[in-house]
Design a protein around this nucleic acid. Structure first.
Length: 616
RNA sequence: GCCCCCGUAGCUCAGUUGGAUAGAGCAGCUGACUUCUAAUCAGCAGGUCCCAGGUUCGAAUCCUGGCGGGGGUGCCA
């Protein structure tokens, strides 16, 4: 992914031209980065070339002299309107309006100027990651919507995308929950996820016992947090564990009754999970389920392979992988013969890279598992498991996201100390959004006035969900953030609804133009006013933003761009009458600018998993 | 103990990968609706970029050492 893939736009032309000019000016062979950047301040033009200073210094020339020599080599015709040298050796570039207009016209196709990157690129996105018998909570919000957005972006670029919902559907915790449910005589067919969740928690509390783990933790100087946690666990009963282990063994060996119960457990969980995912408007369904159980029969083989290659070694009865640069080993088999989540993750990497042939595997998992993924990735590299069948080194990438906190800056809990369910939070957001939409529809002049209750609720849902998702996606993924519905639903400034609103206003203009049978689809784009030109420059940047957002795995870059585009449009909207303009050519040009802006806003929002109502 | 992340305006955050006078939103103040949707726009005010060194033409950004907050740290996931 690089700028070179976008051929026709002024930015690429500037890049290529200055690249060549620098070599000529220096009289040297070589590929010099021309450091073309958008100007921060309009008084410095639209773009600038910042290469002269660094290059001049290392060659003992005056930067401004070098800038002069570079400029003498540059032949850009009408791509630029003017260029001048400023400050220590900046070359400020003002783009030609006609060329800019033609560039935007050329972007007016079904790809909006985004170059395809087809050729069989494959990516796996590990996202959502719900656990069977547990409610979705805010933690899953991020793993779901960030992952969905990353997947969307790569799809948009023509990649083959595997969305993998790595369910926690196997192992002792599940067996313990099943045992607890059996003992309580519950009817699995009638269970709600709430009841399941209670059973899960109770089973965890009553069953945890880990004397060896505690000793190890103390011996290895673990933090007080971990030690206290393990001590608490030890206070629980031990018998439950052996019960659960029996259940697990029976389940493992295919006991039909248990397998049926296990499936019922999954069905019960996923019914509600998919309801919630439906509210969230993400593209994740049953076809994306590939949980831990998928890998259960591969774990013994994984460990054996590691042992045979000498990379997995025995230590106190356990099998570990050691690394040269860290003390912490990677445990892949417990001393009691059981496997760990690292084992499953290794099997999953093997599958994703070797079977699915992914050249990129992105794990959208919270930041606390950073060390774990570092170890698992390095462990798989030691085995060469990061190589696709074609020998490509796969980019194994943990995308660590920060925690969602309550207003007290502590993990979000209800009064009684429970996790909020994600569904409850989303429903509240939808309620707030709907209330707002209905209130505004009461205004006789509102475009939504007179719409049916169903229509208004549909818009309200889109607005409420947009508020939550945009608030999450618009700040850097690694940061923690405070879940504050009041702020998210404020709908002013840098929010999802603000962008939706810009989209709705444009839609309104375009539908009026259609009603008046005004033709503009093939109009020449004119950028005579400052506002039109700024809008044109913003439109032009879209393809590059998409490439960078996908490459860097940073959805907030797209958010920042969309906000800037919506904002730039609003200034244009204020200053540049469209339908009211008497000049047919100007009117048609502006309509085409409106159309491009609307399509980019809708496309960008869609990539974030956010809907774009045409009225609100 | 060791490792990782974070620290930018009163609050919430950007900062184009080292460029010019550090930018937005919210909150505050001033102005703009008989007007294509005011969920808007134009403007004012607001800064020890945690601290101290270093690297260089140039540092919020890179390197070193501190301070403060959070997280992780061998048989849980």
């Amino acid at each position: 992914m690089s700028t070179q893939q976008i051929k026709q736009d002024p930015l690429s032309i500037l890049d290529n031209t200055f690249r060549a000019a620098i070599a000529k000016a220096l009289g040297e062979e070589g590929n010099f980065d021309p450091v073309i950047r958008a100007a921060q301040n309009p008084k410095f033009g639209d773009y600038q070339c910042n290469a002269a200073m660094a290059l001049a210094k290392s060659r003992g020339i005056k930067p401004r002299d070098l800038a002069e020599r570079i400029l003498a080599q540059v032949e850009l015709g009408d791509v630029v309107e003017s260029m001048e040298i400023a400050g220590p050796g900046f070359i400020n570039i003002t783009l030609g309006r006609a060329m800019l207009g033609r560039t935007i016209e050329s972007m007016d196709d079904d790809r909006l100027g985004i170059p395809p990157q087809g050729d069989g690129h494959v990516i796996t996105v590990d996202l959502c990651g719900v656990n069977v018998a547990k409610q979705m909570h805010v933690g899953h919000l991020r793993a779901t919507i960030i992952g969905d957005s990353i997947a969307n972006l790569h799809e948009r670029l023509g990649w083959t995308v595997h969305r993998e919902n790595h369910l926690g559907d196997w192992g002792l915790p599940i067996a313990m929950t099943m045992t607890a449910l059996r003992n309580s005589g519950a009817d699995l067919g009638q269970l709600t996820l709430d009841a399941l969740n209670v059973a899960y928690r109770d089973a965890q509390l009553s069953g945890r016992s880990d004397v060896r783990g505690l000793e190890g933790a103390i011996a290895h100087g673990c933090g007080p947090h971990r030690i206290a946690e393990l001590e608490t666990q030890n206070e629980g009963a031990i018998e439950n564990i052996s019960d659960a282990k029996e259940t697990l063994i029976a389940l493992q060996s295919g006991d039909p009754e248990l397998v049926a119960e296990w499936n019922a457990l999954i069905d019960c969980t996923m019914r509600e999970v998919f309801d919630t995912l439906g509210l969230l408007n993400v593209n994740i369904g049953p076809e994306n389920n590939r949980g831990e159980s998928f890998y259960k029969d591969k774990l013994a083989g994984v460990v054996e392979t590691f042992i045979e290659s000498g990379i997995g070694v025995e230590d106190n009865g356990a099998i570990v992988v050691r690394f040269e640069d860290r003390e912490r080993p990677l445990l892949i088999r417990k001393s009691d013969g059981g496997f760990l989540y690292a084992t499953t993750d290794l099997a999953a990497i093997r599958h994703r890279v070797h079977e699915l042939k992914s050249e990129r595997v992105v794990y959208v998992v919270d930041a606390r598992q950073k060390d774990h993924f570092k170890d698992v990735f390095d462990g798989s590299r030691k085995m060469g498991w990061d190589k696709t069948p074609d020998g490509i080194e796969s980019d194994l990438h943990h995308l660590p996201f920060g925690s969602v906190l309550g207003r007290d800056k502590k993990p979000l809990k209800t009064r009684s100390g429970e996790n909020f369910t994600l569904r409850a939070l989303l429903e509240e957001a939808i309620e707030r959004g709907t209330g707002e939409v209905i209130a505004r529809a009461e205004d006789f002049n509102a475009p939504t006035h007179g719409m049916t209750r169903d229509e208004l609720e549909s818009i309200g849902r889109a607005v409420g969900i947009a508020a939550v998702k945009y608030a999450d996606l618009s700040s850097g993924v690694t940061r923690d953030y405070i879940f504050d519905l009041d702020r998210m639903i404020a709908f002013e400034g840098n929010t999802g609804p603000y962008i939706q609103y810009a989209h709705a206003r444009i839609s309104s203009i375009l539908s009026k133009a259609e009603g008046e049978d005004i033709k503009w689809q093939n109009a020449g784009i004119q950028l005579d006013t400052a506002e039109e030109k700024q809008l044109g420059l913003a439109i032009m940047r879209y393809p590059q933003v998409i490439l960078e957002t996908a490459e860097q795995l940073e959805p907030h870059r797209l958010c920042t761009y969309l906000y800037d585009l919506a904002n730039t449009y609003s200034s244009f909207y204020q200053c540049c009458p469209v339908l009211r303009n008497d000049d047919e050519d100007v009117r048609a040009s502006r309509l085409r600018l409106c159309s491009m802006t609307r399509r980019i806003l809708a496309d960008g929002l869609a990539l974030l998993g956010i809907e774009s109502p045409s009225r609100m």
